[in-house]
Design a protein around this nucleic acid. Structure first.
Length: 820
RNA sequence: GCGAGGAUGGCGGAAUUGGUAGACGCGCUGGUUUUAGGUACCAGUACCUUUGGUGUGGGGGUUCGAGUCCCCCUCCUCGUACCA
């Protein structure tokens, strides 16, 4: 052991020893009696370089995994590569190399970087989603979904991104622009593949209640995204026609207040009306042109035009005009609404603008309401509602819906905001959709014995359409049903398809007979702790939850074996910032993890990212702070000198006891951080305090030396999840029997926490006036006596009458007085 | 608009149940070592008019005692949105 702390040397040495001792492999021996624990970090896209966000994510996961191992768990802590995707194609165009080459080279580079950090992954389980052995099973599941009718092809208005040359799922459109390239998306009508996530909307919503280990924020975001609303569907007959105009409403109780109807510009009725009105056609055209960007919508004026059609009110038989309105969305509900200006703010504004009648049908239970001035949107009592007059508006939802359904004019209905998942992409670097299009048989799923449909990896994208379109060998195949020469589906899967099930694949990553082994699922799934960025709150985390249920329902595992949900606990880490903003190349404020590791070592990089902020908060990068972390390690290093000298004097018993108290209360605090919320910043602060206490302690005899050694050993052991190389080195230097990283997590010696005398604060009138040291179990009288004996406290009690004394054991003494 | 979270020194952030506010680190100030710079170490560091007083965004309240609980207000962050 050298005098100075040489991080690079130490880290290389221990990484080799860990490999030699095969420390990080997961034990899959069924006889292993240890409890299993599955710790998962979000696998990276192999962009070529590790960035600080990765480092933070993986240091958090590694700390958890190592802590659990040290507590006797058999830990699964895997890593892999989310290896399909657009950047590979863009790089391929730029460098004139096939995307596969670029991707695999990046994986190699990033693997090296991850290993340099000393992360305890079981590398034997590494997966890359672009390998046929992986996506084969995704194709397999997809064909099962086709059989069940859960995967289907449909013509639909879809989101198209021109620069990316592909369609996008609703979830991939963020504020009206493409999530990857920030270009406004265009609406196009195309035939695309969908998966019926809406069939699972209710379960996805209901099971959110089971996710007590998830941040409420994420649960809330998913709940909003699914967007369940209950109400009624009502059919309005069109005047002079047998056709009906169907609408969805959450307020059937206000049905009697309908004074007009509104349909979306894209609604068939609007289109039909436009045929005979140039003005209307012009208006509809304007509406369709409006960008979907919300900023525009927000400021967008409410506009409309009458269609000339009239609808018949289902109860009163009155004639109400049908308008086209720019605020009605074709994509939600039926694309048509009933308008009740008296009880809906938007309808009210619209009615005011176009001078449409306002009919109040609900009045407040108490007081008056000026319905002309504003809509009344609260619950109340029904008026002007014929047979429903006088009933409570909440109850009227039921009774009016029931009446409608008896009359065959409506029914109860639940509406979701969630739409089916669009999974086909017009891209090359993705998993092929396992379908062959036959003129006679239609879209035929590729049979199991022909899977995987391998993606040719030698093609060179050019920037336009996918090169698969011109790849004859790939394109042509015989129909699996009738044998007729046919063409393959040339679209590939959305890459969220791969990342939606990788957590389950890790449980049996080399299985070549099934997507996952049910026994492995039983052993490991669901993931005990999942860690990653909050940016995946709806996209990845919703799809993964959905996929888990699809896999369960495909019979791959039962609820008992794999659970209904893939992630038991979720930690969403904050972003890494520099100068208050997100690091990005364009801003030139990136910090390269490689440079930090080269300068200070992996342990310092790990320590700082965990210490600088609580995990779920943003982390402001601070170079001086990194140096501070490095300094701490050097200080611990110097503690070793305390053990070098032999002492044969007498120790101050109180000082030794105080040190042992610090040691064991630190164990308590650090353990608490791991068990509750992963506040590693606080845990590391506690370890720094212990280090400071050890530094200040001067052993003079045997007892002191023993306490000092105990402290350093505890410190080294508890540092192991954070700075494993350093901890091992310290552990070896003090002669620990085992490597620090495989040592048993220290346990608290309760006797060390017992104190005969305690120091508590003394308050007079709630203000702190000093402190006293009294026996642990001293009563009020003894405490008061001690307080009066202290001159600086006693002076506040002079000429005062004690009214009340509050003694909080172990905390403080508060004396309430009044002038005598 | 709606929903959630937040506001504590110069900075990042601590503070089980209401019980010594500011742990720990950064920065800063002074000192020691050094030819010097850096490193390292030691001491100090909420603020003020300092026998004391004031302090956790602002205002009120409950309490012996409030960063923590209740009411009102301001500001910030995140998510979401003509969702019928």
């Amino acid at each position: 052991m050298s005098e100075r702390y040489e991080a690079e040397q130490i880290e290389a040495k221990w990484q080799q020893r860990w490999i030699d001792a095969d420390i990080d492999s997961t034990c899959d021996d069924p006889d292993d009696a240890r409890e299993s624990y599955y710790c998962l970090v979000m696998f990276p896209y192999p962009s070529g370089n590790l960035h600080m966000g990765h480092v933070r994510n993986y240091c958090l996961g590694d700390a958890v995994a190592r802590y659990k191992r040290m507590n006797g768990f058999n830990v699964l802590h895997p890593i892999g590569w989310d290896a399909f995707g657009l950047p590979a194609e863009n790089a391929a165009i730029k460098h004139h190399r096939p995307p596969a080459e670029w991707t695999y080279a990046n994986i190699d580079q990033m693997r090296t970087q991850l290993k340099r950090l000393g992360l305890s992954y079981d590398w034997s389980r590494e997966i890359a989603t672009c390998r046929p052995e992986y996506y084969r099973w995704e194709q397999w599941l997809f064909t099962r979904l086709m059989e069940k009718g859960l995967a289907y092809q449909a013509d639909a208005e879809v989101n198209w991104c021109d620069p990316c040359h592909t369609v996008l799922a609703n979830e991939q459109v963020v504020d009206g622009v493409c999530w990857r390239c920030d270009t406004p998306v265009i609406k196009k009508n195309l035939k695309q593949w969908f998966i019926r996530i809406t069939d699972y909307a209710e379960e996805l919503l209901a099971d959110l209640d089971k996710l007590s280990g998830w941040p409420e924020k994420v649960v809330g975001m998913q709940r909003n995204w699914i967007g369940k609303s209950s109400g009624a569907e009502v059919s309005f007959r069109l005047e002079g026609s047998d056709e009906t105009l169907d609408i969805f409403t959450t307020r059937p109780d206000t049905l009697m207040g309908v004074t007009y109807m509104a349909v979306a510009a894209a609604h068939p009725l609007a289109q039909k009306a436009a045929e005979s009105s140039l003005d209307l056609a012009k208006f509809i055209d304007e509406c369709s042109r409006i960008s979907t960007k919300e900023a525009d919508i927000e400021t967008m004026e409410k506009r409309g035009m009458p269609t000339g059609f009239n609808a018949v009110h289902p109860i009163t038989g009155a004639s109400v005009p049908v308008w086209v309105a720019n605020f009605v969305l074709m994509g939600y509900g039926t694309g048509a609404v009933m308008s009740v200006p008296a009880h809906d703010e938007r309808d009210h504004a619209f009615a005011k603008k176009y001078d449409l009648p306002i009919k109040q049908v609900i009045k407040p239970v108490e007081g008056d309401w000026d319905i002309d001035a504003a809509a009344f949107t609260e619950a109340g009592e029904l008026v002007n509602s014929a047979q429903f007059d006088g009933s409570d508006s909440v109850a009227a939802k039921q009774s009016i819906t029931q009446w409608l359904s008896e009359q065959g004019k409506g029914c109860e209905r639940v509406q979701y905001r969630l739409r089916d998942w669009l999974v086909s992409r017009q891209r090359y670097w993705g998993a092929p959709i396992p379908v062959i299009h036959c003129d006679d048989c239609g879209a035929v799923p590729v049979p199991d014995d022909q899977l995987p449909v391998e993606l040719p990896t030698h093609l060179q994208p050019t920037g336009g359409a996918s090169p698969l379109v011109d790849c004859h060998d790939f394109k042509h195949a015989d129909c699996p049903k009738c044998g007729k020469p046919s063409v393959r589906e040339l679209d590939t899967f959305d890459t969220f398809m791969e990342s939606s099930w990788y957590m389950n694949r890790y449980t049996s990553p080399r299985c070549d007979t099934a997507m996952v082994e049910s026994s492995a699922m039983q052993r490991w799934a669901p993931v005990d702790q999942y860690i990653g960025g909050v940016e995946h709150a709806v996209l990845h985390l919703l799809y993964a939850r959905f996929y888990h249920k699809l896999m369960r329902d495909a019979g791959l595992f039962s609820t008992e074996q794999g659970g209904d949900e893939p992630f038991r606990n979720l930690l969403t880490q904050g972003m890494v910032l520099k100068d208050g903003t997100k690091m990005s190349k364009s801003k030139g404020n990136t910090v390269d993890p490689k440079a930090i590791i080269e300068r200070f070592g992996a342990d310092t990089a790990r320590l700082f990212t965990l210490f600088a902020a609580p995990p779920e908060k943003e982390l402001e990068w601070n170079d001086a702070g990194v140096e501070g972390g490095h300094r701490f390690l050097k200080r611990v290093w110097r503690l070793l000198e305390k053990l070098k000298e032999q002492h044969d004097g007498e120790d101050d018993a109180a000082a030794v006891k105080a040190l042992r108290f610090t040691i064991h209360s630190t164990i308590q605090r650090v353990t608490h951080a791991f068990e509750h919320g992963f506040a590693f910043n606080v845990a590391i602060a506690a370890l720094m305090e212990l280090s400071n206490a050890l530094q200040a302690f001067e052993p003079k005899g045997e007892a002191g030396s023993a306490a000092c050694r105990e402290g350093i050993e505890v410190l080294a052991t508890m540092l192991a999840p954070f700075v494993p190389h350093f901890a091992c080195e310290i552990g070896e230097a003090i002669g620990m029997r085992e490597m620090a990283i495989v040592s048993q997590w220290p346990s608290v010696d309760e006797s060390a926490l017992e104190q005969n005398e305690i120091t508590i604060a003394v308050q007079v009138q709630g203000k702190r006036r000093g402190e006293i040291t009294i026996a642990k179990d001293a009563g009020q009288d003894e405490a008061m006596a001690a307080a009066r004996a202290d001159a600086s406290i006693a002076k506040w009690l002079e000429n005062m009458q004690v009214v009340k004394v509050i003694l909080v054991p172990g905390r403080l003494l508060n004396v309430v007085v009044k002038p005598a």
